[in-house]
Simulated scan of single mutants.
Amino acid sequence: MKTDAQLHQDVSAELEWEPAVHAAAIGVEVNDGIVTLSGHLRSHAEKLAAERAAERVAGVRGVVVQLEVRPGEAIGDEALAQAAHAALQWQANLPAGAIKVRVEKGWITLSGEVEWGYQRALAERTVSHLRGVTGLHNYLTVQSRMTPPDVARRIEAALCRHAQREARHIDVRVEHGVVTLSGQVDSLAERDATVGAAWSAPGVVNVIDELRVNGAPAAHR
């Protein structure tokens, strides 16, 4: 098991390695395997890249993001809203006209209803990398529909195919289209992959993440 000093060195090195991140602007602190990132960045996309870089490091049990976005160029909310709307409309895998966009001081709020869980995540990714975005609220909901009776088995099969359930430490429960994941995974990347697999199942309207990363507190995302 890595010490906090080793994790600090590895996370700092990974931030330096990530080309989308200005590592010199980010402060790194580690306490009992929990990494805290602080500082000021130029874009929301850079903030996301920094978070993902820290999560990739083996031994990291959690990431606390205290990064503030300060765009280098001034982009008005109206222009940003138009850009976000256009980006969503041009995304072939999203239902046309189903997603509403609101922008306030660079913060984008998405609302409306989509057909699949993956579309909810795709919409967020589509607008999060636009210039001028300082933050994002994703209030999209997934259409309620009939959940296959074997959806839990389907999710477990997908996790096995993706090599995310080798030790069978993940429990999958489904009730009225809501999937609850519990158990232990080895890394934050494995946790994200497991949640993503659950969202991809038919009939899933929400995923409750109670997974633990090597004994870290559950995420409840």
Rank of each mutant, 00 (worst) to 15 (best):
Y139K: 06
R173E: 15
E190R: 10
A54S: 11
K100H: 14
A193M: 10
L159V: 10
A193W: 09
E29T: 15
T141L: 13
D171C: 01
L15I: 00
I208L: 12
Q119H: 13
V127L: 07
A193P: 01
R212E: 08
G183M: 09
H8N: 06
R168M: 07
Q164H: 04
V178S: 01
P149L: 11
P71V: 04
V101I: 15
E16D: 15
A96T: 11
G62N: 09
E104D: 15
D4W: 05
K100W: 03
I75F: 10
A24E: 03
S187R: 07
L159A: 05
V103G: 08
V28W: 00
V60L: 00
G177N: 07
V133N: 14
G62Q: 13
L181Q: 12
Q6K: 14
I108D: 03
P148V: 06
M146L: 12
A13T: 01
V195Q: 12
E29H: 14
A121I: 08
R168H: 11
E113R: 10
R42C: 03
N138H: 11
R42N: 10
A197C: 13
V28C: 00
Q164I: 04
A96F: 04
L94K: 08
D150P: 02
W199E: 13
L130W: 11
D32I: 01
V207A: 06
H169W: 01
T134D: 03
L140Y: 14
V30M: 07
S111Q: 15
L94P: 02
A198F: 08
I75Y: 04
I108A: 07
I75M: 08
D77K: 12
R102F: 03
T36R: 12
Q89S: 15
G203M: 14
